[in-house]
Simulated assay, not measured.
Amino acid sequence: MHHPEPSALGFSPAGWVSLAIIAIFLIAFWKKVPGMLAGGLDKSISEIKKQLDEAKALRAEAEALRQEYADKIANAEKDAAAMLEHARHEADAIVAKAEADTTEVIARREKMAEDKIAAAERAAVSDLRAKAADAAAVAAKGLIAARHTAEADKALVDQAIGSI
């Protein structure tokens, strides 16, 4: 069975659809729709490229900034280590100076103590000599007073005169 196919002005439905599509394409070309589509796509592509370039520039700037801060951190760590080492050297120098000063003070005080002891010994010896001289004078006075009488004095005087 064969069914008759509708037609208008001698065109079948497939022909009308083909004519409509051709008309749409012709109007689209006449209104420059492909150019607008290509321009829109080109514009989108250029916008995307611009954003990519900006992203690359931002990334490069971020990398440079990261490197700069990494360098600063490394320098800060080096400076901190140098300051710590310097502080250790200063502390060692202070300790060494304190030890030297302490040794010097101890030596000076020992010398002062020895000088005081020597002075005390000299004073004691001098005092002892003075007391011994006083005791000898008192003893001599007592002996002279006890042994020398007037007769002994007369004999001494006669002896002294005789020797002259």
Rank of each mutant, 00 (worst) to 15 (best):
H3P: 00
P6T: 01
G10L: 02
S12Q: 09
S12L: 12
G15A: 09
G15P: 00
V17N: 07
S18A: 10
I21C: 02
I21Q: 03
I22A: 12
I22N: 08
A23T: 08
F25Q: 06
F25L: 08
L26E: 05
A28R: 04
W30R: 15
W30L: 14
P34M: 01
L37N: 04
A38C: 08
A38H: 10
G39W: 08
G39P: 03
G40M: 07
G40W: 08
G40L: 11
D42E: 12
S44L: 08
S44D: 09
I45L: 14
S46H: 12
E47W: 13
Q51D: 13
D53M: 11
A57H: 03
L58C: 05
R59V: 10
A60T: 10
E61H: 08
E61K: 13
A62Y: 15
E63S: 11
A64I: 02
A70Q: 12
D71H: 07
K72S: 05
A74Q: 12
A74M: 12
A76P: 01
A76V: 08
A80W: 05
A81N: 03
A82D: 08
H86R: 14
E90S: 04
A91D: 07
A91Y: 15
I94V: 14
V95Q: 13
A96C: 05
K97Y: 05
E99P: 03
T102G: 15
T103D: 15
E104A: 10
R108M: 03
R109M: 13
E110Q: 14
K111C: 09
M112A: 15
A119V: 07
A120P: 02
E121Q: 12
V125F: 13
L128T: 13
A130V: 04
K131Y: 01
A133V: 03
D134V: 08
D134M: 05
A137R: 10
V138R: 04
I144Y: 05
I144W: 06
A145V: 12
A146G: 06
R147E: 13
H148S: 11
E151F: 07
A152D: 00
K154P: 00
A155Y: 01
A155I: 00
V157Y: 00
I161L: 00
G162H: 02
S163H: 06
I164E: 08
I164R: 00
